[in-house]
Amino acid sequence: MQLFSSLKMINLFKIKDQKKEESASAAGKAPVKKQSAGELRLNKDISELNLPKNTSISFPNGKDDLMSFEIVIRPDEGYYMSGSFGFTFQVSPSYPHEPPKVKCKTKVYHPNIDLEGNVCLNILREDWKPVLNINTVIYGLNLLFTQPNDEDPLNHEAAAVLRDNPKMFEANVRRAMAGGYVGQHYFPRCA
């Protein structure tokens, strides 16, 4: 296989002339934005989004920067029905090798979301695979609201209440969404 015939020894002398030409023609060229393969893949994911009815999406940086965006989930069933929960997505150029970074912007009383907005969803960390996409993550987040689970707690107290006293958990969720205290923590209204 000819790997480097363009630069074989005999052509070494040509390089010098070639370089002079290049430096002359390179002047005044507008810089071009390099688009990473990750960005292209993300664009594809976004253009193929099939959002659940209760989920909306927005792009604070406009149509040409999709690497950070926000979604709002309004659950239509379960404990969190009629609440409104915002999430921010940060996607790195290494996407989909790296999962998107997702944070919950709304303070929520939830066993799998802590008060700083960290989300315990397996596909966002240990089970992320490059074949997954933004749609999968959005469906996963929706599932957290219809099926909060006490087995992977990030908010320890909420998980214990859900496990031991579902009625009280339901009441706590209602109180938090209406804007009020659960234990020592105040939750702004989100319903």
């Binding site: 071009v32 934005k33 688009q35 960005e39 292209l40 664009n43 594809k44 976004i46 253009s47 193929e48 989004l49 099939n50 959002l51 999406i57 927005s58 792009f59 406009g62 149509k63 040409d64 999709l66």
Partner: peptide
């Protein structure tokens, strides 16, 4: 098809908000 050129999204089929913008 959705079409992009050097970071410039010329047309996006979905979601609606981007479709409207392009």
């Amino acid at each position: 098809a959705s079409v992009t050129h050097e970071g410039n999204n010329l047309y996006m089929q979905s979601p609606e908000v981007l479709e409207q913008m392009t």
